[in-house]
């Protein structure tokens, strides 16, 4: 048991549940405001995007810090992004449209912001469905190709947000800026720069460590 508590994974899992806990708490105390359905829709959508950006930040962070174990949290973050996107989608289908399938179909075809949001969700479904070890083994090289879908999914998610707001695009622009940064950090030259940054720091530590070595 001790080992389980020392592992950060259960803690991360609990932290990822906080946004849902907050919604449930606010719902129970009447704190969702005058338009609760809008509140839930916006909140779950926001956390889906945050989850996607966190998932995409693992690889650059790993390169920068050299801590390969970070990869172990990537799948959980990705699945939580999917979890909140799923809640967002269900809120729309159930609470917002109340299963008005004709209306939903029309929305998906006619409203570009819903079209791109739906497309992003479909991609996340594919990624979540193939997230197991078994699927990884089965798909082999193609698994990695398939999972590059996270890039268009995140991009469409941000566009979905930007197209839906009436005028104040400050928040969508912030999400867009962070996403752009995370994508730029994947370009070959910045990848090398990240590794080099770690290299010089590691080299510096090596020198310091050497300096602390007792003189013979």
């Amino acid at each position: 048991m001790g080992a389980a508590w020392r592992s950060p994974k259960p803690w991360l899992f609990a932290v990822c549940l906080l946004p849902l806990g907050r919604l449930l708490g606010l719902g129970a105390t009447g704190g969702l405001g005058a338009n609760p359905i809008e509140f839930i829709t916006h909140s779950t959508g926001t956390w889906a995007l945050v989850g996607l950006l966190l998932t995409l930040s693992i690889t650059p962070l790993r390169r920068l810090t050299g801590r390969t174990e970070l990869i172990r949290y990537r799948r959980m973050l990705g699945l939580f992004a999917f979890f909140y996107a799923g809640l967002h989608f269900v809120t729309y289908i159930w609470l917002d449209q109340f299963f008005d399938l004709a209306g939903i179909g029309k929305d998906i075809v006619k409203r570009p912001f819903i079209t791109v949001g739906f497309a992003a969700f479909v991609m996340l479904v594919a990624l979540a469905a193939t997230s197991t070890h078994a699927m990884m083994r089965r798909l082999g090289r193609r698994w990695q190709q398939l999972h590059r879908l996270i890039y268009p999914a995140a991009l469409l998610g941000v566009v979905h947000y930007g197209w839906l707001v009436k005028k104040d695009v400050t928040q969508p622009l912030w999400f867009g800026a962070v996403l752009a940064l995370l994508l730029v950090l994947r370009l070959p030259w910045s990848r090398n720069a990240l590794s080099a940054a770690r290299g010089t720091r590691d080299a510096g530590q090596a020198v310091k460590a050497a300096a602390r070595m007792p003189q013979r």
Binding site: E38, K106, R111
Partner: peptide
């Protein structure tokens, strides 16, 4: 242009 005006949610 970006959303339908056919329906509305009455607050409450």
């Amino acid at each position: 242009p970006r959303w339908s005006q056919a329906k509305e949610r009455r607050i409450g």
